[in-house]
Amino acid sequence: MSIKALRGLLLPFVILLTGCQAVLMSPSGDVALQQRNLIVTSLLLMLIIIIPVIALTLLFAWRYRASNKNAKYDPEWNHSTMLELLIWSAPLLIIIALGALTWVSTHKLDPFRPLERLSAGRAVPADAKPLVVEVVALDWKWLFIYPEQGIATVNELAAPVDRPIQFKITASTVMNSFFIPALAGQIYAMPGMETQLHAVINKPGEFDGFSANYSGAGFSGMRFKFHGLSDGQFSQWVSQAKSDGDSLNRDVYLKLEQPSENSPVHHYATVSAGLYQAILNRCVESNRMCLNEMMTLDAKGGLGIPGAYNITSLDTATRSRLGLLGAPVNGYVGAMCSANNLDGAPFTTPTAKSQ
């Protein structure tokens, strides 16, 4: 085959590759950059073994081919101490190196661990306050609540450049996965549990975020844009959300929670106090006991006979939303205590770690 013909054959594949963006290999956030470096380092360590093995395989196949009559043939050969040392010591050293690298990186890049640096050579200032973003994976859209700013957004996320971000992540119904490749690795979102992710964006720009865990019919449209902004631009973005958004209260959330596909960006100028905690503890409806209340009661041994009182059931609207209108009406214990009326200690929040 001529060089010209080979170029013509490869041209369509080259054109297809021009649309690829290797964002994982060129991230804009320090956490993602450290993860990229871990991938590259691990690859290079493994290539120390793989390249010589492939090269020697080809060399032996060529040198000891049937047509090479000059190759030495020794049918009685069965052992070489030097060869055994080379075969076993090199992989053993690589495994030790990879194990040490993995152990250190697993702790250093723990998503629950607050950041120690903004980028290489730049530590997080002692007075730096992370931007807290409460993330809720819905069917099939993303809800982002900014408690400090008092706003919320659907399918749009923004943060200042070089400011640490603390994501608190949960889900409304099914397990999902929160992933912004340019920012940091993916982390799971699970109903009734909270995962966390600490990250920082080091470059301004617009980056893709999406769900990395299949969650049903609208999964493919569960995408959003993440904006890396200057401090001034972020303030303008917050002001814009406050000016053109409406209020996100519990009733509005229950409607938003309903499954919808390819949902547009939407802003909420205000958010009801405690909404995220109610979502996390699965008690947005007023007649549901929160999970943290249940856990506190269980930790104290339950309520025994008093638990037989204050019985309630789901209202008609909730039963209709959950598709339970034709099912028997079951009663359950309503709220029996507040966060501090057992021993003065606040309720604990159910958490779960995810790599």
Rank of each mutant, 00 (worst) to 15 (best):
Y73D: 10
K69W: 02
P114A: 13
L109V: 07
G99R: 01
I96K: 07
E76H: 15
V133M: 00
A90R: 10
T106L: 14
H107G: 11
L101K: 03
L115T: 07
L101H: 03
L86F: 13
P130S: 08
I96C: 12
E84Q: 08
P91A: 06
D74W: 08
L92V: 15
V135Y: 03
V133D: 00
K108L: 13
T102A: 14
V133A: 00
G121N: 02
L131S: 04
E76F: 14
G99H: 09
E116W: 08
V132R: 00
E134N: 12
L115W: 01
L131R: 02
I87H: 07
S89K: 11
K108F: 11
W103K: 06
E134S: 03
E84F: 15
H79K: 14
H107K: 10
M82W: 05
S80V: 05
E84P: 00
L98N: 00
Y73N: 13
S119F: 14
K108M: 12
K69M: 08
S80K: 01
L109E: 03
L83T: 09
V132I: 13
L85S: 11
H79R: 14
N78H: 14
A100T: 10
E116F: 09
R113S: 08
E134K: 10
W88N: 06
H79N: 08
W103D: 09
A100Y: 04
V135E: 03
I94P: 01
S119P: 02
R113L: 03
W103S: 10
K129S: 11
E76Q: 14
K72V: 15
S119E: 05
F112S: 15
T81Q: 14
T106M: 14
S80I: 04
F112D: 13
S89V: 15
P91D: 03
L131H: 05
L109K: 01
R117C: 05
I96L: 13
I96M: 11
S89D: 06
K69T: 12
E116A: 09
P111R: 08
W103A: 15
N70W: 02
P125N: 11
L86C: 10
A97G: 13
K129P: 02
E76S: 15
G99M: 04
F112N: 13
K72Y: 07
L101C: 04
I94L: 09
L93Q: 07
A137G: 12
A128P: 02
E84W: 15
A123Y: 08
S89W: 08
T102E: 09
S89G: 09
V132G: 03
P114C: 09
D74L: 01
S105G: 05
V135T: 02
P125V: 00
T81V: 05
L98G: 00
I96H: 04
S105L: 06
L115N: 01
W88P: 00
L83F: 15
V132F: 02
A120E: 06
A90V: 05
G99S: 04
R117H: 10
L101M: 06
V124R: 01
